[in-house]
Nucleic acid binder design. Structure first.
Lengths: 343, 343
DNA sequence: CTGTTAGCGCTTTCAG
DNA sequence: CTGAAAGCGCTAACAG
């Protein structure tokens, strides 16, 4: 004899019986498009459903109607404020649209990303959102593309958040433009000698930001010395290490360090401080993203704002739009704070 | 004539036909428990599946087997590092166990939480994890409990992350104990006059931490003056406002401000600094949680460490354990940093 | 408007 | 070990 009698969940069938109507009527009263079932029946069904504490089996609905109300969201690292803010926007907008989001983490591995896309495809989601910057050396890239195209061929929508590199709708972020503008404003503030901490050279986001920054400086005839550009991991610790690397080779007359992301900049700040250098006084620092944290570090960090939560919302808006080829570009804006005083 | 011919997805049936075997055999080869189908057949099916780029329809599998491989995760706010770290642990552990995570955000509303639980129940997840502290004045509490019990009755597992208040398995965090220990260590450091910034009095987590702290001080005969305890929102801005409130009434001889969470403490730090007060020198500050950020603020924040990612992992470990009544308590440890120099 | 009856894609007896 | 057939819970024609 079994110990726990795992009761079977209440089904639509149970509700129909309890209400004394047919399965179809119960279905229509509970979910079918409005104004189809007589009020007296309708309320009987609703009552029965409430009494039985009925919840429609979403999987069954999905197979019956041949589609789900699911959004699959892939991010590189959910604990990173950049992604968690975007995720917040995606989730909020999805809920508003009556969609459920399932989430997976790639841990910044493109192989893992491909795996996950395959697996998530089994969910038959309506939308698949891939957030996280692309890399220029992805060997699995073709496989990813064909997987995604197969998904689209069956009616799914794919939206990328990053740069518009792949043949899919994307919420593009003005990385290069924002960095260029930042460079201009820093030059206007009086800075002339720069160093930079960037992520892997193959990471598109890092690459775009750095090249935009370099271009912006070039407009004023300024260059960053080759050896003043260090590439590390695209994380807080990467920023920390990057600053130390710069420190190790001697900062000399460097006036400002540009880190291609705020998390890196924050790490750099800590490294500098540990080395007895006062950021904002001895040397200026700027980042990119405008994550919430940067208001609370010392000094508050100058950066380029990306409306992260809005990016998430836009991604699902794009996915739900009827326009097949729509694209969306997010404008970034420079935010100057105390980490880059005018000189 | 339709423009886009939305191809129907490849089904098991297609694979079976392509491989020249029966539906049943194809099913067994692709998913059924090992060692049942002859190798020659098996490989033919696998080849066909690969050739067709087949992905099993998870919904269909779910209805056929009467269960999913889904974990439903509810958090208060995914952009909050506390929750995003826990989520990271849940997601990682879930993926390792072959489970997919669907995620919803309550925005700290218990009404919304109840709604979401009902909706998510429709997914027929195997596990439901509710992270986010309970409130002592929940009017919907009974409804939540019965909803969750109904879910358990049908074989689902429920795990709470917070305090062990409700009749469900929970990963309990030693909030009171940790705060008490923090108080002891601060007293040992020489502090005698305290102020506190807490969240709503009804928020269990806030309440436990504050009372633990108060108890810890009481062991040394120290009390926090009534008016030195301010209650604000359980967020960064709440901490900011709380510090300002304290400032407004005059900090007088207060030596240390205890904020019941790190995000609040970080906000408080900024408020103090804006007021021209140097945290760590003019006044000490301590928080709770040990979120990554606190290493990077100035001065680095003394706090009570909770292994957040581990908490997430444990939650799903608990959910997957066969022991029905298991519970798990997470030990917290005090971490002293520069925001509370010895005096 | 309501009930009957096919499926949806997949798993799982149950015979062969 | 394999295939035929009966569901799983729900929706969507299709007749009344």
């Amino acid at each position: 004899m079994e110990i726990a009698s795992r009761k079977a969940p209440v089904t639509l069938h149970d509700v129909a019986r309890e209400a004394g109507v047919s399965l179809a009527t119960a279905s229509r009263a509970l979910n079918g498009s409005e104004r189809k079932v007589h009020e007296s029946y309708r309320s009987r069904v609703l009552d029965a459903a409430a009494r039985l504490n009925y919840t429609p089996n979403l999987s069954a609905q999905a197979v019956a109607k041949g589609g789900t109300n699911t959004v699959a969201l892939l991010v590189a690292d959910i604990a990173d404020p950049y992604f968690s803010s975007i995720a917040a926007g995606v989730i909020r907008a999805s809920e508003e649209a009556g969609l459920v989001v399932t989430m997976a983490v790639t841990e910044r591995s493109t192989a893992r990303e491909l795996e996950l896309v395959r697996a998530l495809r089994g969910q038959r989601p309506r939308v698949m959102i891939l957030a996280g910057s692309r890399s220029s050396t992805e060997t699995d890239q073709d496989a990813l593309i064909s997987e995604l195209q197969a998904f689209e061929a069956t009616g799914g929508r794919v939206v990328f958040v990053s740069q518009h590199e792949l043949p899919f709708e994307t919420v593009a972020i003005e990385n290069a433009e924002g960095a260029k503008q930042l460079a201009r404003e820093l030059v206007a503030l009086g800075y002339r000698r720069f160093a930079a901490i960037t992520g892997s050279r193959t990471l598109l986001t890092a690459r775009d930001r750095l090249s935009g920054f370099v271009e912006g400086l070039a407009e004023s005839g300024i260059e960053i010395p080759e050896n003043r550009i260090v590439a590390t991991e695209f994380t807080r610790d990467g920023g920390f290490d990057g600053a130390n690397a710069l420190l190790a080779q001697g900062l000399d007359d460097t006036e400002l360090i540009f880190a291609v992301s705020d998390v890196m900049a924050v790490g750099a700040l800590s490294a500098l401080r540990e080395a007895g250098i006062v950021p904002g006084e001895d040397i200026a620092v700027a980042g990119f993203d405008d994550i919430p944290t940067v208001r609370d570090v010392t000094p508050p960090l100058s950066t380029v704002n990306i409306p992260l939560v809005e990016v998430g919302r836009r991604a699902i808006a794009l996915a739900l739009s009827t326009d097949d080829t729509a694209n969306d570009t997010i404008t970034t804006t420079v935010v100057l704070r105390d980490s880059t005083p005018s000189r």
